[in-house]
């Protein structure tokens, strides 16, 4: 079967997104059909644009150029200098991509980076970030962030909070939801029939029987016992420092971590360029590169498309897995 193409949103046009889209097409071409949603004027001069009228046209257009589903923005683009006038367009493009994937015209959404502050001032954007906006569009309350590379998948349970808030924010409910969403996504989107999840401890040496923190004894272990009784294959709580070397990684399909850097240190140290951000728990597939708008280098032709290429490839693989899971 032929899957619909992947929708790639333009993100903040003054950032590195447009040039990365063009570079990703140079690499992927007809091998991985995707289409860019945005204003063709914002792409770097010389980009071989093929304007399409419906997403399905991208399937053949991608052989001759970057397929672009035109979304007109009011203002031109200056690299590195975001124009508030274009902010509403950035938000509309995301909504348009979600609509297309929900209608089945796109198989997944891959998002290029936005700048929250520009969207707040220019479009009254009220969400803390990209992911929360996508959750609202998808009609779900709770999503989970996964960072994935060919060697490792990690899921931080708490994310963008100060380290001294982690212990307080880490509740059994939050951890339970995170593990379940991860489990379901591994089956549905990653083609893992019987997912094995490793759960990190919060404290050094996973607390060493309460000698260095009690969250493992009081919360994580009882929750894991309950989840095992419900049929999940979960191991831990593991000492975080010994769960990421190659032999340890071979024993699980995803690692659920307790805080941001516990998850991000191993994946970035292993795979800085090829790490992909995946949002689990949405009714559709969403991936994104693991970097920001990089205004300082936008338009200079030096932005690295590796993470976006990896994000598109992962979205394609997830779409194939999801299509297979349905049949």
């Amino acid at each position: 079967m032929t899957l619909p193409p992947i929708a790639l949103t333009c993100g903040e046009p003054a950032g590195v997104g447009p040039e990365i889209a063009a570079r990703a097409w140079e690499t992927l071409g007809a091998r991985l059909p995707f289409f860019y949603i945005g204003d063709p004027r914002h792409l770097p001069a010389g980009t071989p644009v093929v304007e399409i009228h419906a997403p399905a046209d991208a399937l053949h257009a991608c052989a001759s150029g970057l397929p672009v589903l035109r979304h007109d923005f009011p203002a031109d683009n200056t690299w590195g200098q975001p124009d508030a006038a274009n902010a509403p367009g950035v938000v509309e493009v995301i909504a348009r991509a979600v609509k297309l994937v929900q209608e089945g015209q796109a198989s997944a959404v891959c998002t290029l980076p936005i700048n929250k502050h520009v969207l707040q001032s220019g479009a009254g954007f009220a969400y803390p970030g990209h992911t929360e906006y996508l959750a609202a569009l998808g009609g779900v309350d709770r999503v989970v962030m996964m960072l994935a590379s060919p060697e490792l998948r990690v899921v931080p349970t708490t994310i963008h909070i100060a380290l001294d808030q982690v212990a307080a924010e880490l509740t059994p409910e939050l951890l339970e939801e995170t593990i379940w969403i991860t489990h379901r996504a591994l089956i549905q989107d990653f083609g893992v029939e019987s997912p094995r999840i490793a759960v990190a401890g919060l404290n050094p040496h996973a607390g060493e029987n309460g000698a260095m923190g009690r969250q493992e004894l009081d919360m994580i272990i009882p929750l894991m016992d309950k989840l095992r009784a419900e049929g999940l294959a979960i191991a831990g709580p593991m000492s975080a420092d010994t769960m990421f070397h190659p032999a340890a990684r071979a024993r699980y399909d995803a690692a659920v971590c307790m805080y941001h850097d516990q998850a991000l240190i191993p994946i970035k140290t292993l795979a800085f360029d090829s790490g992909v951000n995946v949002t689990l728990g949405l009714p559709f597939i969403r991936t994104s590169p693991d970097h920001g708008t990089a205004f300082d280098i936008a338009g200079k032709g030096i932005a690295n498309p590796a993470s976006t290429i990896a994000a598109l490839e992962m979205a394609r693989d997830m779409a194939i897995a999801r299509a297979g899971a349905k049949t």
Partner: peptide, 10 residues
């Protein structure tokens, strides 16, 4: 070093 994570920041 060997202390609970919640005691690190202080």
């Amino acid at each position: 070093s060997h202390i609970g994570l919640k005691d690190v920041a202080e």
